[in-house]
Design a protein around this nucleic acid. Structure first.
Length: 727
DNA sequence: CAATGGGGTATTTTT
DNA sequence: TACCCCATTG
């Protein structure tokens, strides 16, 4: 047991060893929080607690998996329950759910299933999509379900919304489907309506741990309270300064008020930072100190001063991307592993330019999130077949695949199915199966529905596990053939995706002997973006939100501009609560960096619609003390390299804005490149100009390199110089 | 019944 | 600007 506690600080040891009663661990970034949690679990086990009496809730499946590994390694046993709230609720519901028409083979609807469902609902209510604000509905519905908004009624618009909400709920129940929030809502309902089940879990979970407690919402709070009420051995860890999910219903009061909920709670503060060098922590600390709604807490560096954070100014997003790629490439050639390098941004849309620049340089990268594998059309189509096989009431999935591949199911046929379903109280798929064997039904429709139900039925043959079943489904549907016909352009990619799906299924089968289709779907639908990410030998690109809990040697934060970070949302509002959350988000990003922090901003950034320029460097640069490093970007001309900034006076209130403007200007202009010029590129070596395009700011040159072939560069941005032919 | 084109509209973060 | 939906046409 002493071995477990070796190498822990006094405070960390306290957090590990106070196992009885409520405990709040306020843990700053890099303070060894994960280590504390896993050691605590191992410590409990080594003290004689049965692993099955321990419940540890984390924010992502990835975190849960990593913690499980570490616990098993140090405790030498398995069986402690480590999972996310959503996975836990889902798994427990599959054991006991029997409530208001829901049954245990329920389907989990993700965001896009939810949208499809809402589309159907609007159609049946005869409400226009635009009118109803379709894309904003899931958020509003979620806010009500997770307890961060009140169900409103009253004016006309809200009356519509109430109708939509009610119809949506009804549709979900009819489809035996739960959305993400329902997993928690229905679980809580089950606990409240079935005391014997509640009692079972209260008995079972003698020790409850909750990580990232600052990002729990009202529902999660209630679940925790319900489950831990009996033994009151509840340990929550978190950091109010890293609360970044209020828009998803996270209630920062859960952590701020922990002491009110549990007056007897012990509090341990972990402030030492073992991750980042002092220069980085200084910037991050300056920044977060600006938040008013905050409990005083410091970042105490353990490592040395290290490199100062760097600010890079760019002309536009392409320029910014280019400079990021340059920085990454020079670090990499200096021996830094790409797997220890990450680029963070506020919005997913920003990844495009960065991807392109990395692609141009041949720098490998992986993106967390964006258009994820399971969101691709062909994958969603095949998944819909699996979902129907598990839960025949799933109308959303039925509508998705009833005519994929095309089998002549038009509006007329669909109306017939819908009519039959409505009049018999069955789901659409159930009705379809009936019509398929109905002698009186039109032959064409019978044939189509026969094919459909046959394909679904083929999944019941489970030889070769999920992989075998999906393989046979693809065969039965002649799906590859369909893709070839329907998608002339990118059919090959799509077929490759299908192949990849099948091999992923086989892989899953190997890891889960005896696993069922339902198990597979369950796991797949609860996977988050980060869960699917693997640290490869490549630069990682992700949103600031996704970066929570990770760390890298080098971190680049792109788009440090007013409006983007802090982001002024769709309504442009920028009240202080929102700004404070944006500040925390930036703080989270900065504190992921171990040794090297680079922040970049672009002078010109077009919005999707008009062409409004943001153009102001983020206030966060000033607040973190990095403003003096800003180099002004000239309007007419981009500088080849960011110039070192002049050291400015401190950041007193006043005319800081002027401060930005009169920083260094661009360098002197070069002669334009001409076709035939011999040039040398900083990292790519010598080459020859074969073409030029545009002029002024948008001038580009195409350079032919002996080994690499043609590359296009923006003049003045690329580290490109003219050389003599004989050099 | 499918494909194509035009027009209109939405723009943050995600378990 | 880019995507998505719908209507029209083949």
């Amino acid at each position: 047991m002493d071995g477990l506690l070796a190498n822990l600080t006094e405070r960390q040891r306290e957090a590990v060893c106070c196992t009885e009663g409520p405990l709040l661990v306020v843990a700053g970034p890099g303070s060894g929080k994960t280590r504390v949690i896993t050691t605590r679990v191992a410590y409990l086990i080594s003290g004689g607690t049965a692993p099955s009496n321990i419940l540890c809730l984390t924010f992502t499946n990835k975190a849960a998996d990593e913690m499980r590994e570490r616990v098993e390694a140090s405790a030498g046993t398995r069986g402690a329950w480590l999972s996310t709230f959503h996975s836990m609720c889902s798994r427990l519901l599959r054991m006991d759910l029997d409530l208001e028409g829901y049954s245990r083979n329920f389907t989990i609807y993700d965001r896009s299933d939810q949208l499809s469902c809402l589309r159907n609902v609007l159609k049946s209510l005869n409400i226009d999509q635009g009118e109803a604000g379709l894309t904003r509905l899931p958020g509003r519905i979620s806010a009500i379900k997770n307890g961060s908004a009140n169900p409103v009624s009253g004016d006309e618009k809200n009356r519509d919304f109430s109708r939509i909400f009610a119809a949506y709920e009804k549709a979900l129940q009819a489809a035996n489907a739960l959305d993400f929030d329902d997993l928690l809502v229905v679980f809580l309902k089950m606990l409240k309506s079935r005391p014997e089940i509640l009692e079972k879990y209260r008995d079972r979970f003698r020790y409850v741990l909750v990580d990232e407690y600052q990002d729990t919402n009202r529902l999660q709070y209630e679940i925790v309270m319900q489950i831990s009420e009996k033994h009151r051995n509840i340990c929550v860890t978190g950091d109010p300064d890293q609360s970044i999910y209020s828009w998803r219903g996270a209630d920062i009061r859960n952590i701020l008020d922990f002491r009110k909920s549990f007056p007897e709670a012990r509090v341990v503060l972990l402030e030492q930072n073992f991750r980042s060098t002092a220069g980085i922590l200084k910037a991050a600390g300056n920044l977060i100190a600006r938040n008013r709604k905050r409990e005083e807490k410091s970042l105490i560096p353990v490592l040395g001063e290290g490199l100062a954070p760097r600010v890079v100014s760019a002309f536009d997003p392409e320029d910014e991307a280019l400079r990021i790629a340059e920085a990454v490439s020079s670090l990499s050639s200096g021996g830094a592993p790409l797997s220890e390098t990450a680029v963070f941004y506020r919005t997913n849309a920003q990844s495009r330019a960065i991807e392109q620049a990395l692609l141009d340089r041949g720098i490998p990268y992986v993106i967390v999130g964006s258009v994820e594998f399971f969101q691709r059309r062909e994958i969603k189509d095949l998944s819909a077949y699996l979902k129907i096989a598990v839960n025949p009431k799933d109308d959303v999935s039925f509508l998705r695949i009833c005519n994929v591949p095309a089998r002549g199911m038009g509006d007329k046929a669909l109306d017939m199915v819908k009519g039959a379903a409505d009049s018999s109280g069955a789901s659409m798929f159930e009705a379809a199966v009936r019509i398929a064997s109905d002698q009186n039904a039109p032959p064409r429709i019978r044939k189509a529905l026969g094919e459909l139900s046959g394909a679904v039925a083929s999944l019941a043959d489970f030889r070769g596990g999920v992989g075998g079943a999906v393989g046979r489904l693809v065969e039965a549907l002649r799906y590859a053939e369909y893709l070839g016909k329907a998608f002339a352009e990118d059919a090959e990619d799509r077929v490759a995706n299908v192949t990849e799906l099948i091999s992923a299924c086989h892989e899953w089968d190997e890891k889960h002997p005896g696993g069922t289709l339902a198990d597979f779907l369950e796991e797949v639908s609860l996977l988050s973006d980060v869960d699917k990410w693997d640290r490869k030998d490549a630069v990682s690109l992700m949103t600031l939100h996704s970066s929570k809990g990770l760390e890298f040697d080098t971190v680049v934060i792109a788009g440090m501009e007013e409006g983007l970070l802090p982001h002024f949302g769709i309504d442009g509002a920028s009240d202080s609560d929102r700004i404070e959350e944006e500040r925390r988000l930036c703080f989270v990003g900065m504190t992921r960096a171990k040794r090297n922090l680079i922040v970049t901003w672009a002078k010109n950034r077009r919005t999707a619609r008009g062409d409004i320029d943001f153009g102001e460097p983020s206030r966060f640069l000033r607040e973190s003390g990095l403003a003096p490093l800003l180099a002004e970007v000239s309007e007419s001309r981009m500088t080849p390299y960011p110039s070192p900034g002049r050291a400015g006076p401190g950041t007193e209130e006043g005319d800081e804005d002027l401060e930005f403007r009169d920083s260094l200007a661009g360098e002197a202009e070069d002669e334009p490149f001409k076709t035939g010029d011999y040039v040398k590129h900083l990292s790519l070596g010598p080459g020859r100009v074969v073409a030029t395009k545009g002029f002024g700011c948008s001038a580009k040159v195409v350079v032919n390199f002996p080994r690499l072939g043609l590359k296009t560069f923006a003049v003045g941005l690329a580290p490109l110089i003219r050389v003599n032919p004989d050099e």
